[in-house]
């Protein structure tokens, strides 16, 4: 329908995003009817997302013709942004920005570096950026899930954690069950996409490769490669972030900092 109304591709794109935004708006209204208020957050996220992707799209057009090092530069910028975004899931945990950024850098950065070096990811910016950004985006989601679960688990088990401390457990031992649970929970989406590969979703990259004329079977295999890399980088990210974040909720004297009420943070001994 729309493609008959608009012949210019840019106009078509804008019309399509208007329709997509309208759809989101309807869903938000439905939520409002169930007393879930997301209007503000969703509206801001929508506008922000659109502006960002258009801006980046325009920059990409220029950069794709640029020298090799711009790829690494772009990926680093993406990692920083991903860290800043997913740290919001650890509200009230001091140092969570550093933890998020380090974990995502460690998880996705190492996979991108090794796989590029091995030739699994092509060094051409046109393939490095899309594949790399997928790894980073998924690492970001996993990190957000892990931190969110960790935070709520700790807040819900203050009694158990302090009981363990009072029995002489170290801070690490006292939250081990919650660290493990947040790690496992955060991996559910990555595991499910590996499981449902090709059945529930035929992801974008494969579609793109088919459109651009790759052999279908190679496109399919490469899609598996990407999902496997996503899984590896996400798990690595979550492993690092749950490990790092757990030391941020205690003082140097093994006192729990993250508690319900008063902004979640009590006043305890200064961190060493």
């Amino acid at each position: 329908m729309l493609n008959r109304l608009f012949t210019d591709q840019l106009q078509l794109g804008l019309a399509q995003s208007a329709v997509a935004a309208l759809l989101v708006f309807v869903v938000v209204l439905l939520g409002r009817w169930r007393k879930v208020h997301l209007e503000r957050e969703v509206a801001i996220a929508l506008v922000r997302g659109l502006v960002q992707i258009i801006a980046v799209g325009s920059v990409l057009v220029v950069l794709l013709r640029g020298p090799q090092w711009t790829g690494a530069f772009l990926l680093a910028a993406m990692i920083l942004a991903a860290g800043a975004i997913s740290t919001k899931r650890a509200k009230g945990i001091p140092g969570s920005l550093l933890v998020s950024t380090c974990s995502i850098a460690c998880g996705s950065g190492s996979v991108i570096a090794i796989m590029t070096w091995l030739g699994v990811i092509d060094t051409a910016i046109t393939s490095l950026i899309p594949v790399g950004s997928m790894l980073i985006a998924n690492a970001m989601n996993t990190n957000g899930l892990a931190l969110n679960r960790f935070r709520s688990d700790v807040l819900a088990h203050v009694g158990e954690i302090e009981t363990a401390l009072a029995l002489g457990a170290s801070s690490k031992q006292s939250i081990a069950p919650y660290v493990q649970a947040s790690f496992e929970t955060s991996l559910i989406p990555a595991i499910d996409s590996l499981r449902s590969l090709g059945i529930v979703w035929i992801p974008g990259l494969m579609a793109g490769m088919l459109l651009s004329g790759s052999r279908p079977i190679y496109a399919a295999i490469y899609q598996f490669v990407v999902i496997a890399m996503i899984f590896a980088s996400s798990s690595l990210t979550s492993l690092v972030s749950t490990m790092l974040i757990s030391s941020h909720v205690f003082t140097s004297a093994d006192q729990l900092l993250l508690r319900p009420g008063n902004g979640e943070i009590g006043t305890q001994a200064k961190k060493a």
Binding site: G159, T163, L165, A166, L167, G168, A169, S170, A253, D254, Q255
Partner: peptide, 13 residues
């Protein structure tokens, strides 16, 4: 060390 202290000073809540 806190662990040692808390072994010597037990607590029941």
């Amino acid at each position: 060390p806190p662990c040692e202290l808390r072994r010597k000073v037990g607590m029941v809540t």
